[in-house]
Design a protein around this nucleic acid. Structure first.
Lengths: 220, 220
DNA sequence: AAGATATGCTAACGCCGTTAGATGTCCGAA
DNA sequence: TTCGGACATCTAACGGCGTTAGCATATCTT
């Protein structure tokens, strides 16, 4: 155990501690409570120390996102273990909604917050050189849609897998994000968002599929 | 023309000028550029002056929202002049999407930004005492849905007008808000959001309506 | 002309993200 | 064993933010 090794270990430990503190603040009081100064307070260091581990606040939040995105992707992947592509889509929708409603703060951070410019540039570079891992959650959905199209499960005029995937993503995202932002608006008699989202997914799949009447409705 | 009258007029003129400056900043550089100090600069006053016209920044933004909400509501109302309730829903969806895509900044402010607590409390009070105008855009949609249900246009298991209205709102909101936030993510081959949204509305209506195959598809 | 009222300003407070520069502390080599 | 450099950490500050207090000044009313 050389000294540089130990130092590196301590470095990583502090980095993890910082991320955890940020996560705690975030979960307890929402994104607006996540402040470089408060994170520093929580780990009992002064603010500049954070900049030895993260280029800036946006990089710190990105690191947080990536951890949660991995979790999210894993949940979706478990849901995608179905042979029938239509049922696969339905189950992915269900798990998507459940993740969003169980972790609304994370969902807001992941999908309802504008990307920092830097991240976009980084990703564009990855895509350019083909390094993109291609195993994104979106790809799971798009592939299921493509399978539906290839095996003739959809009405013939729905033939663009990317577009239909975006249709379905939009469906679940719309219901949960409306709920997360506007649930407290008392002008509207909100229904339980889980049921609402399922109803939309079911209706959309009914509309997409050949032979109308739904195969297996989302029950729970 | 008494002097107090003139002063009041000047007061309102300055108020309008402030709002316009805020709107200009907002349209030119997005919400994060709308700063009390920058607004003050634009109208050639010092920042404290703004507080003689608006309680705080959130009240100023709310005033801006309300103007745009009126515009939005008017656009939707024009679209709702259709006898057939299903076609009415389809047209409202179309105009909703067009508004969102033509004014993405406004859409972000109106529907993709968390409400300040104060506003929620104010609305709750209105609802409590029954002062709510009931002519909200959401009500337009819900009433069209209720008409569909009452006249037996929907499958019998879709019987909750509130829920179905929330399903349809979620559909259009999902597609346009995903696009507005994530269009620049190069990992995804984005399709034109207008067509995507129309496809979702059509599919959902196909799924909701009795007698499957769409009546009149959204063409343009 | 004098007093009241409204208008606008300067200056400041306490937050924020971030950076520069000083200080100390430990490690490896002479 | 002591010296020099690398590293960790701190204090202090900059410029921005929303917001408020207190003062000057201009304008109306009597």
């Amino acid at each position: 155990m050389t000294a540089p090794e130990r130092r590196e270990r301590e470095r990583q430990a502090l980095r993890a501690k910082i991320l955890q503190a940020a996560r705690d603040l975030f979960l307890a009081h929402g994104i607006e409570a996540v402040t470089m100064r408060k994170i520093a307070d929580a780990v009992e260091y002064t603010p500049p120390v954070l900049y030895a581990h993260f280029a800036d606040k946006s990089a710190l939040l990105t690191a947080l996102c990536e951890e949660d995105l991995t979790l999210f992707h894993a949940a979706l992947q478990r849901a995608a273990r179905r042979a029938d592509p239509v049922e696969r889509i339905r189950r992915m929708g269900k798990h998507y909604v459940d993740f969003a409603l169980e972790h609304p703060h994370h969902y807001r951070l992941l999908f309802m917050t504008p990307f920092p410019e830097e991240q976009i540039a980084a990703k564009a570079a990855q895509v350019e050189e083909g390094t993109t891992q291609g195993q994104s959650s979106y790809a799971l959905l798009r592939d299921a849609v493509a399978e539906c199209i290839a095996t003739g499960r959809f009405e013939k005029h729905h033939k663009d897998a990317e577009r239909v995937a975006q249709v379905l993503w939009g469906a679940v995202h719309g219901v949960v994000s409306l709920w997360i932002l506007h649930a407290r608006n008392p002008e509207i008699e909100w229904r339980a968002p889980r049921a609402t989202a399922f109803e939309l997914v079911d209706a959309a799949l009914d509309g997409l599929c050949i032979g109308a009447a739904a195969t297996s409705r989302t029950s729970s």
